[in-house]
Every structure is written in C-alpha cells, then in structure tokens.
C-alpha cells in the first residue's frame, strides 16, 4: 500500500492516493497531497478546499463540481484551472474527503 511520508510519520494512502484514515488530514497533509499533483496551494485553492470540507461535514459526501460552483461560488472553469485534469477527484483527494462515487 502506498504511503505519504511527512515529518517523520507515514500516512496510508489507497490505490487512488486518497487518505485511508481521513482523520489524519491537516493543512500540511493537504499541501503534501497537492504536491503529488504538481499543485501548489494558493488562497483560492484553500477557498475550494474549505468549502468541500464544510459540505462533507454536513452531508457525508463530497460535493460535485456543480455544487462547488453553485453553492461555493467558484466558477467551474476556474476549478479546471486550479485542479487541472480531473478536478472532481483531485479536490476531494487534497481536501481529505471521499472520492466522488456512483453506486457501482
């Protein structure tokens, strides 16, 4: 199983690079997870991440991109720029929320 090594601890990741134990998420962990996607987090990224985490805390699932736009106020096109190629999955991974899923 893959791991994320940081500051002397090692965090377990699943096959898609998501934290196995979501409680281990922190801002520092997010920075590290983003590095794997060649993203360095700006204030705008953090706005998205905070919205996603807030939504997850309330609804028990990651918000869709449409919801990040409609409810969180960040235009969809910008999401594709902030988290290029597959923002849906990348945002969730970096924010430490579950992978967007269907039922199969």
């Amino acid at each position: 199983m893959a791991t994320l090594e940081m500051a002397g601890t090692s965090l377990e990741l699943d096959d898609d690079g998501f934290l196995v134990n979501r409680d281990e998420w922190s801002r520092e962990v997010a920075e590290e997870l983003a590095k794997a996607d060649d993203i360095s987090l700006t204030d705008r990224h953090w706005e998205v991440i905070e919205f996603v985490r807030g939504w997850y805390a309330e609804k028990d699932e990651s918000p869709t991109l449409r919801r990040i736009t409609k409810v969180g106020g960040i235009p969809t096109k910008e999401l594709y720029q902030l988290f290029p190629e597959g923002p849906g999955k990348k945002v969730a991974r970096i924010a430490g929320t579950p992978k967007p899923e269907g039922c199969v």
């Binding site: 869709t64 991109l65 849906g88 967007p100 899923e101 269907g102 039922c103 199969v104």
Partner: peptide, 17 residues
C-alpha cells in the same frame, strides 16, 4: 461521457464489471 472520475467507482464492482 460521465462527470465521475471513473465509470465504475467502487473497487469490487470495477474488478468484476
């Protein structure tokens, strides 16, 4: 064309289907 990251998003379902 799907908004999800994969067609089969659950591990066991994707292994079988």
């Amino acid at each position: 064309a799907t908004p999800l990251p994969e067609v089969f998003t659950k591990p066991r379902a994707s292994a079988f289907l």
